[in-house]
Design a protein around this nucleic acid. Structure first.
Lengths: 199, 199
DNA sequence: ACCTGAACACCGTTCAAGT
DNA sequence: ACCTGAACACCGTTCAAGT
């Protein structure tokens, strides 16, 4: 399957020829199933979004904050487990069936729990953007592959010319990334809550 | 210049050979100035970030909200003027000198106007993510190139299976994108403000 | 020493030719 | 009818060979 291969070798190394080889087939054969590599990538993204969909056994959320937090965590976890999909997600707006399903489920739940439809839609978009953006930031953390190159780059930074950047970096190094994610999310949820109360 | 060519032909059509041709040079010559195409793309992104830097003649912001809004608007405008740079910005964390300068200036201003350093750093990241995410969404609007393909895709959507998505789409079609951007930004600013007051 | 054309090792995609 | 090897038209990158 294409999604597995992306997980394994990453977007850059993913090749129609390599996928064909894995399937004991030929590259030309793939074009009988998909129109292009781009279309295939849409499917790969949609596979990831499938993991964000609500499971049937999930207990019902008690508040819209609860619901938003839960979907955000699922989304975040899916991206942690499939970090190689991130570049694809940043490049496309997810238009596959699961992408639409997640959107629909989430907005629906938020509306049901008291958020005005317009605000619910904006909330979903803002949160989704935050998750993807945070994951992009996370992939640049010291555990990532290109770490050494970027680390050496930052090492050259003067504390005098970039005092706040360096200070902030130090401050944030203290807190684990999981907490950071939750804190930033809370920032957004609070903003949504204030918008809700205003009307 | 590389940035101009990206603006003109887009990321996909941008080619070392084409750039060399524009410069009345050869592709091999480019590798005397840059190590790789990726490095060149870092410069292209940094050119855009240069437009986000504070101009010397700017009047001083009155509040951190004011400062944040102003930098967000500049960033947003730069992306509107160079939409082809967006895919690059989504793929890299901007590590060029201007990227660092914008970060430094912004966090510095926010701290000076009363935001705790940690919160200022997170605020910058969250807002930057929002801007890039919003631009990605905007590039999918009906004025964009791939509009017909995506439009036809959404046309197939059942109002029964995706009631909230369709309803939200209708609701949001009414408001101009500029207003939407400002509203979403306000959501985040409110969240930051609540975090500030809490401590 | 500086620049280039041509080459290398790839791509995504297509298509004539086999079974 | 289904599948494939080879080909096409490209890439980014390198390098021997020219000046």
């Amino acid at each position: 399957m294409a999604a597995q291969l992306v997980d394994e070798v990453g977007t850059n190394e993913f090749t129609m020829r390599l996928l064909a080889e894995r399937l004991h087939s030929s590259a030309a054969m793939l074009y009988r199933h998909v129109a292009s590599k781009d279309e295939l990538m849409v499917y790969v993204v949609d596979r990831l979004l499938a993991e964000v969909t609500e499971a049937p056994g999930d207990k019902r959320p008690q508040s819209w904050q609860d619901a938003a937090r839960r979907i955000a965590m699922r989304f975040h976890r899916a991206l942690s487990q499939h970090p190689n999909v991130l570049p694809l997600l940043a490049a496309q707006v997810p238009i596959g069936p699961n992408g639409l399903a997640v959107r629909e489920q989430t907005i629906g739940t938020l509306v049901q729990l008291g958020l005005p439809p317009r605000l619910a839609a904006r909330a979903y978009t803002t949160i989704a953007q935050y998750i993807v953006g945070f994951a992009a930031l996370e992939s640049n953390s010291p555990t990532a592959a290109h770490a050494s190159a970027i680390a050496s780059y930052y090492r050259e930074l003067d504390t005098d010319t970039y005092p706040h950047t360096v200070a902030a970096a130090d401050a944030l190094t203290g807190t684990p990334l999981e907490d950071e994610f939750a804190e930033g999310l809370q920032l957004i949820l609070d903003g949504i809550d204030r918008a809700r109360r205003k009307r």
